[in-house]
Nucleic acid binder design. Structure first.
Length: 274
DNA sequence: CTAACTCCCTGATAGC
DNA sequence: TGCTATCAGGGAGTTA
């Protein structure tokens, strides 16, 4: 699934195509997504309204609509949001289509259907509850060495699993957690509570650098991610360790190892990362 | 409480 | 080449 950089690239690509456009009609495939389709709200609060803006929180996209409505997408593992011309051919796994007043159609496509859409009034507690226990964004100045040191205090879980916890910091998934720890020369299995403030400062800085670079490069396309125009990203070409077990470390030449942490594939250089 | 495991679903691919 | 077992970028719920 898309992690923070991919979701941000989608947001930026989509915005000029949908901002201030009116949603003329909503169509739904009737296939169940991770959460039930909010039929009444979709036809009552979304259809016929205008898209004012798209925001991102972690891996969620928030469409601000007229009528103080917020339509929230999560793309799961394989979700895609695009806005092609309305007459372009539909694709397998297109589940939601929003016909716009500029001849385009906002489309949600999701093969595995781990994604979902929710519709709330901005004032409704459910809209806020979704993010109530989220940690800071990686680009938030609050995401710093002191914060991480405190959050990790006493934790025995691996630093990699810790970084992938949305309550600690939002939007870092398996690919970028691996890359951040490689850049920070930290072994992914290190218990989070054992790292020093210096370690955390490096991890916070490398997080921002890597995520920023990935956004600039259009995200990472591993198998099926694509941006709002249906194009691939390029950051995967610069991945140092993710998916590269058995290959040589780009820094020291040692063989990159693979290890499962909390059920997730983890890749690291046994010599650079300690 | 914490942390790890399981499951949702389809498709790509590693490995035989 | 062709089949099939495994694995996949997330996250919620369950188990230990």
């Amino acid at each position: 699934m898309p992690e923070l950089p991919e979701v941000e690239v989608i947001r930026q690509g989509l915005l000029p195509l949908v901002k201030n456009r009116r949603i003329l009609a909503v169509s739904y495939s009737n296939k169940r997504l991770r959460k039930p389709f909010p039929r009444a709200r979709m036809y009552g609060r979304v259809e016929k309204n205008f898209i004012l803006d798209i925001e991102r929180r972690g891996r969620y996209l928030l469409f601000r609509l007229t009528g103080k409505t917020v339509m929230i997408f999560h793309l799961g593992m394989t979700g895609k949001l695009t806005a092609p011309p309305a007459d372009s051919p539909r694709r397998r796994h297109d589940h939601l289509r929003f016909l716009l007043d500029n001849g385009r159609e906002l489309r949600f496509n999701d093969a595995r259907r781990f994604g979902f859409v929710e519709v709330w009034g901005e004032e409704e507690p459910e809209a806020l509850a979704l993010f109530a226990d989220f940690g800071p964004e990686p680009f938030d100045p609050a995401f710093d060495a002191q914060y991480l040191l405190s959050a990790a205090h006493g934790k025995t879980q691996s630093v990699k699993t810790f970084l992938m916890d949305n309550r600690v910091v939002t939007g870092i998934g398996n690919i970028y957690a691996n890359e951040i720890l490689f850049a920070s020369r930290t072994h992914p299995a290190t218990p989070a509570g054992r790292l020093s403030k210096l370690d955390w400062g490096l991890i916070a800085r490398q997080s921002r650098m890597i995520l920023e670079k990935a956004i600039q490069m259009g995200g990472s396309t591993i198998s099926d991610y694509e941006n709002a125009d249906g194009k691939s990203g390029y950051f995967q070409l610069t991945l140092a360790v993710y998916g590269r077990h058995g290959e040589s470390c780009p820094v020291c030449g040692s063989t990159i190892a693979r290890l499962a942490l909390a059920g997730r594939a983890s890749f690291f250089c046994p010599d650079c990362q300690r």
